[in-house]
Design a protein around this nucleic acid. Structure first.
Lengths: 132, 132
DNA sequence: ACTAATAATAGTAATTATTATTGATTGTGA
DNA sequence: TCACAATCAATAATAATTACTATTATTAGT
């Protein structure tokens, strides 16, 4: 049985209040402002539970640290290869991807993730080249 | 300058000889059969280097452990939500995904990953339901 | 409202995956 | 062949996550 806790509510509220895709550390420090003695384990436990119950989304980014998204609708992300920043992609591809025909796995879903260099990192890169 | 090492060659050979998508531990134990005193650090270092130089592909699966793929062409994977098994998907979607129009990031690429329940895990699931 | 049952918590220890360090060894261009 | 940087094995260190335990808080039933 799942019962209320103000810690979990606070975590969910935070994720719903931002458009970024924070990692656990960021979530921890933000929620700490509301509940100063919250424990990191509590944050992990509740994030997993919220993701399990579909109230938030766990993102797999490859930046060896879990990131979370308050949006639960199907959408894509673009991740910067340099700085690891994550942004939403609004274009919808679902009409092009017919899940049934893909494989013999059941309950199929998909994740479409883009990787690139964000404008800020591109600018830095160019500055470096011009200076050398 | 990159120079030859039998350890790296052995790792690459192993990855090219299998169609599965092993994690570091599996690669380590397999390569150990050829080179018994190889060090785990060496496996990590060479996997990163091989991935960097594009000879193999690092997979981001969410099963908090890196997996690697000897295939370097653009293809998709399907991952079982239960047991974490990874398999190749042959269908090509690239014609549906126009990278340029996606975002203001440069050097864009994408990863399309499917999640589902594999036939084996489905069967287990059904057996469980029938027994209870 | 009171209480018993137990889910959730804080704090901390343990685990797991990965990277860094170090000093010895080895491959390669000169 | 020789000099030297790349690579190695072994091990220590770090980072991310999970597990443990005694305490606190929520909830269902009275």
């Amino acid at each position: 049985m799942i019962r209320y806790s103000k810690q979990r509510e606070c975590i969910l509220n935070y994720l719903n209040s931002v458009t970024c895709h924070p990692n656990v550390e960021k979530i921890y420090t933000e929620v700490k402002k509301e509940i100063p003695n919250i424990s990191l384990g509590t944050v992990y436990r509740n994030l997993n539970q919220l993701a399990e119950s579909g109230k938030i989304q766990k993102l797999i980014t490859g930046n060896n640290a879990e990131h979370y998204d308050g949006r639960t609708d199907l959408h894509s992300h673009v991740i910067c290869r340099k700085c690891g920043k994550i942004e939403d992609i609004c274009t919808d591809f679902s009409e092009h991807i017919e899940l049934e025909s893909i494989s013999d796995y059941s309950n199929l879903s998909y994740k479409l993730t883009f990787y690139g260099i964000c404008p800020e990192c591109s600018r830095e890169e160019n500055a470096k080249i011009n200076n050398s």
